[in-house]
Design a binder for these strands. Structure first.
Length: 423
RNA sequence: GGAAAGGUGGGUGAGUGGCUGAAACCAACAGUUUGCUAAACUGUCGUAGGGGAAACCCUACCGGGGGUUCGAAUCCCCCCCUUUCCGCCA
């Protein structure tokens, strides 16, 4: 959430930045500033009455103590109108504050200066492309056929037990999942992240903290009886650890990683793009999260990008890195790099990681702050990235490493799987 | 699910109507002194909103929301949460 004070002080700058999202927010901003001005005016008036009332109450108290009951009673009569006035203003103020809040919720994060204007995915900037795309034999198979052939994943039975998008991994398919999770966690630990096992279900406040609520309400599974949400990503519980926390500069940066299943309703997405492992309702992911000082957050973002790159290289997958344009970037992000691997049988790029700097957007909602040496508190910057999401990694591993003799496991993963081939 | 206790500043914890935005202790920060990885002493030390060039001032906040009162951390009502015991149970 943007800060009203910032909007007040840097209106033009913010509008310019928001324009990159290919949407015009000027009317929202104008409305917001108008309400803000009203709000402050009303607040001043109300506080003047409150101050008056406080002073009177003190006087009355003193008079009572000195036994001057008559004079005290006389003063009491004055309090009625003051109370009435402040109460009226308080109601007005509450309305204005609520309106202001609603408008603030509508504003996405301001893109970083390096983010390009753009309408949608086709205008994302290709930062780099690494690795060679394997040349597969004529009879190459898509991962859903390979998964079936080698008995790795049972999509149909998942449908029976739960529904579409809840696959069952079996045998080497299941071991491969576990191997990838361990591999990713180990790599994150080596890079300095503390491993965390968070809850997989969160409350409403946490949903608001990282920005899933109210924007993406329909995308999360909601447990009605207990009013809790299944996490769509570990980002939610991991980042919310630092909700309402004031960190010392010496504690920065905070680096944590966690594996969790992720649950997404993905309402409204159907078709061939969602076949097999391409889009699921439940999937596994290792997430990396950092809380950083504003001065360091972009250096840290680059570090995180390097980390994710390292993983893809070790898995011997051809990948590309995209810097998302304004129109394709998530609501809460200031700068996002997407990682895509080329899945050679489907002959398409699949997104496997999204690594972002949210600057103060989440921190403002989370109230995650840093207390500096000078004693002043400032909002922290939050960052996170998938490192990595499993299903599409598995899809491309199966497709890219398929041979006539079976599927080859990349060397870096063999210590984790315990086998070199899926045959 | 049943019963009880409790939610106060970074932590422990005092505070039952005005002298309390809140004692004390610990932690933290700054300094003094002494100096072998420390101790002692002194000082600072909640958050947010608003006003002001600034010094500083005002307002709100003791789980959340309402109420009583001239005045509420303190009294009343509702809700939420935590802990303990019992029950159930991986």
């Amino acid at each position: 959430m943007l800060q009203i004070q910032n909007i007040r002080d840097n209106k033009e700058q913010i509008l310019l930045a928001l324009n990159k999202r290919n949407k015009d927010f000027s009317s929202t901003i104008d409305q917001l500033l108008e309400i803000d001005a009203q709000r402050r005016k009303i607040q001043q008036e109300m506080e003047a009455f409150l101050a008056q009332g406080n002073a009177l109450a003190k006087q009355i108290g003193d008079l009572f103590k000195s036994g001057n009951k008559a004079e005290a009673d006389a003063l009491k009569e004055q309090t009625a109108t003051i109370k009435q006035n402040s109460k009226q203003l308080e109601e007005k103020l509450a309305v204005l504050e609520a309106e202001q809040q609603q408008l603030l919720y509508l504003l996405p994060n301001t893109p970083h200066e390096s983010v390009a204007f753009g309408k949608g995915a086709e205008e994302n900037v290709n930062v780099k492309e690494v690795g060679t795309i394997p040349i597969l034999p004529e009879n190459k198979k898509a991962h859903w056929d390979l998964a079936d052939q080698y008995g790795l994943i049972d999509f149909e039975t998942g449908v029976k037990i739960t529904g579409a998008g809840f696959p069952i991994y079996r045998g080497k398919g299941a071991i491969l999942q576990r191997a990838l999770i361990n591999f990713f966690l180990d790599e994150a630990r080596k890079a300095g992240y503390e491993e965390v096992i968070p809850p997989h279900v969160v409350n409403e406040a946490s949903g608001y903290g990282t920005g899933q609520l109210p924007d993406k309400e329909g995308q999360m599974y909601h447990i009605g009886v207990d009013d809790l949400y299944l996490i769509p990503t570990a980002e939610v519980p991991l980042t919310n650890i630092y909700r309402d926390v004031i960190l010392k500069e010496s504690e920065l940066p905070v680096r944590i990683t966690g594996y969790t299943p992720c649950f997404r309703r993905e309402a409204g997405s159907y078709g061939k793009d969602v076949r097999g492992l391409n889009r699921l309702h439940q999937f596994d992911k290792v997430e990396i999260v950092q809380i950083a000082h504003p001065n360091d957050s972009y250096t840290i973002l680059e570090d995180m990008v390097k980390h994710v790159e390292g993983l893809l290289q070790k898995l011997e997958l051809p990948y590309r890195i995209l810097r998302l344009c304004g129109g394709d970037m998530g609501f809460t992000s200031a700068l996002t790099y997407d990682f895509e691997v080329f899945s050679a049988a489907q002959e398409r790029w699949l997104e496997v990681s999204s690594t972002s700097n949210f600057e103060t957007f989440q921190a403002n909602r989370l109230k995650c702050r840093i207390k500096g040496q000078d004693g002043k508190t400032i909002l922290a910057h939050t960052l996170n990235g998938s490192a990595l999401a499993l299903p599409r990694i598995v899809a491309s591993l199966l497709e890219n490493h398929q041979t006539a003799d079976g599927i080859r496991i990349p060397a870096a993963l063999v210590p984790y799987t315990g086998f070199e081939w899926i045959k």
